[in-house]
Write a protein that binds this DNA or RNA. Structure first.
Lengths: 278, 278
DNA sequence: GTGAACGGGTTTACGCCGTAAACCCTGCGG
DNA sequence: CCGCAGGGTTTACGGCGTAAACCCGTTCAC
């Protein structure tokens, strides 16, 4: 294979003719770009024709509501109204608001299971596995930008559950794939930590950035945007064009492959990750 | 200088005799370990002997209150009581709760200025600068674990302001140092993005992890901790010891140096970071 | 000296929140 | 026919953020 220890280059997007002209190519993880992230609640038990409250329906509605109106707008009363029901009715299925939010987080993260591109086991090597998982999580983050900060900040069940991978099942899956691929237990755990930090940092910043682009009350003035003083920050002004460019997808890909390369070299050399390579 | 293109190895902690035995050495960024992060409000105008509300005093009290009781416990009424004043009195200095929280975030981040180990300009090279800045931010995160999620998730003023570096001044500083050190504008901006993602991911996970260790209502049972079922996750069980170990400080250092190494190679080769190094 | 203005704090009041408790209502097994 | 239970509603309470009116010591122009 050419490229030495480089990460395998997979899932090229390949949209139109050449790559030399940097055409705007669609983000492969943008909502409905791929995979099943985004569809939430197919149905409850298929018996009842119409309403019938139900925990799954409630969580689905909550997610939809947050996606549409933002987390701060979600109240028990409004969620009830959205479901055509009185607020107190929700309490038969959910102990309270906090646990409702826990359920929202869990439900959103569980969309991973419905994503056909993400697998629990590594059929084509650990790098493919990690790539698919990372993009699956990214798809979720982009599909639910208002929910993702919740995924990131809600205190996990155990100290070693690290968002955004918040379920034992995925942790077990990740560690299994890694150890089966030749990582020592220490290296697998270190990889798990590095991987979760990477995902959390990148995706949290990406969704928060997306959030800001719309919100600044629509900038109705004639002069473009000189909101704050500026001027004492000449380099920021000079680089504003560069700074404002949104290269999230490419950056994510680049940083992810970089991380995987680093992990691969750890694996190949059988090091424990704290050591120097040299 | 020995070490080739390796990141300069600085600020070794050096506590006792040898390094070969991995003794528990203190975290250099733990509260009051170094630097001024943690002290918040020296005084307002030194004239008034006792009370006299004041925006700085309010923000300081709010930070202290959050540090002590958690973010959810902070209400205008309680903060007022904590200051010996009626809630409505706060509104003369702060437009509302949201802006109070914005002020809290800003104040906490501004503790960087008071940290003698962090400099706005690079006196000893960009890597030293970036190291110091990163550890300064980490010190802040560890000093205010309950505030840091706020630092991470509050929507920034502009889309290119990336937490945890939330002030134009530090962005200008960072970009200046990088471009002055031979980074192309593109590379400097890419470095800024990678650096903020790194800090955010690592520190958010670190503080959230710290938060969990205490909270699980003190685990009063005899059997250690078998809270959830487990058992279907044999590898997690097997690696539980490894997973529970807290190596935050070393991991932070290792990942940081790794990032800086990567940036250095980008700088040395004059690449734009998307390109392959080969 | 005196009265108007004013900064800074308090009181009162309103609407919304989460949620405990009591209350219906409808279908169903005996 | 009855009781009962599941599922939704009503009512009620305390706490929240905050608008508006109020009060009261200082200051300052005259």
């Amino acid at each position: 294979m050419p490229g030495g220890t480089r990460a395998t280059r997979r899932r090229e997007v390949r949209v139109d003719g050449e790559d030399t002209i940097p055409m705007r190519r669609p983000d492969p993880d943008s909502p409905e770009g791929r995979g099943g992230a985004g569809i939430v609640v197919p149905a409850g038990p298929p018996s009842t024709g119409r309403a019938g409250l139900d925990r799954r329906r409630i969580l689905g509605a909550a997610i939809e509501y947050i996606d549409r109106h933002g987390l701060a707008a979600l109240t028990m009363r409004r969620l009830g109204a959205h479901l055509g029901v009185e607020a107190m009715a929700l309490y038969r299925y959910v102990p309270g608001r906090e646990q409702l939010l826990d359920g929202v987080v869990e439900t959103v993260v569980d969309e991973l299971y419905g994503d056909p591109e993400v697998h629990l086991r590594a059929a084509h090597g650990w790098q493919d596995y990690a790539q698919r998982l990372a993009h699956g999580v990214r798809r979720i983050a982009l599909a639910h930008p208002e929910v993702f900060p919740l995924v990131a900040t809600r205190p996990p069940a155990a100290p070693w559950v690290r968002p955004p991978l918040r379920s034992l099942r995925w942790i077990e899956s990740f560690l299994t794939v890694m150890t089966d691929s030749g990582f020592s237990p220490e290296a697998a755990v270190a990889a798990y930590r590095a991987y979760s930090s990477f995902l959390l940092g990148h995706l949290l910043l990406e969704v928060s950035q997306k959030g800001v682009q719309i919100t600044p009350e629509d900038a109705p003035e004639g002069v473009p945007d000189t909101g704050t003083d500026l001027g004492q920050y000449p380099l920021v002004v000079e680089l504003e064009e560069l700074l404002s460019r949104d290269e999230s997808a490419a950056e994510f890909e680049e940083a992810l492959e970089n991380l995987l390369d680093r992990l691969e070299s750890v694996r190949a050399e059988g090091r424990v990750p704290g050591e120097r390579s040299e």
